[in-house]
Amino acid sequence: MTAPIKVDIWSDVQCPWCYIGKRKFEAGAAAFGGDVEVEYHSFELAPDTPVDFEGTTADYLSKRKGMPLAQVEQMMEQVTTVAKSVGLDYDFDRVHQTNTVISHELLHFAKSKGRQLEMKERLLKAYFVNGEHVGRIADLVEIAAELGFDRAEVSDALTSHRFLPAVKADVALAQEYGINGVPFFVIDGKYGVSGAQEAESFANVLAQVAAEREAEPDSAHKRSDKEAAR
């Protein structure tokens, strides 16, 4: 018996390809069928974004990038169509463009409780599908409370910014790896997979790692019988 394949994923809450990539990775992991352990890491695509931006996402991107509004809207329409193909109903008209650093703090809070994956899914849905604000503490406390977290504890964690160093550590780690864009998947600590790949690609990489482990007779990844029995 072998230990689960570790997959470290760098991602931002306001990254449309990250949510699409999440769905495709999940489908790939399911097709692979083996044990996979996922840990999300923080990545801030636009750390200088204000918490409250007056205007639409298209307005924001058009201003930031100096691109014609029509071109930005066309790109968003294309991304929306791709999202739909994996079962996600993006609604860019309702998106609150914001700074995501506190939502990353909330993700680390959830990780400290062993519930990071659940929070990651909820925050992506909040941003892209539900049109919820994911940059303000009060809104994030509501989202966390809906998942059953203790309001006072979440509020304290976010107002004290107790998890900010963990967010910054993730960002620094991404820089060490040379990660410039997200989603980015580090698989088994040695393979780097960039972007929202097709599910089949993820399945193939996971199968490759599993095969390599099997080929190593005394692999450190293999659990002892005693460990496996626990």
Partner: peptide
């Protein structure tokens, strides 16, 4: 996490967000 040089795999043209440009 032990940092090692990563071997790139997958389609290099997959959708990715770099900065705030996706």
């Amino acid at each position: 996490i032990k940092i090692v040089a990563l071997t790139p795999l997958g389609d290099a043209a997959a959708g990715v967000c770099d900065g705030d440009f996706c």
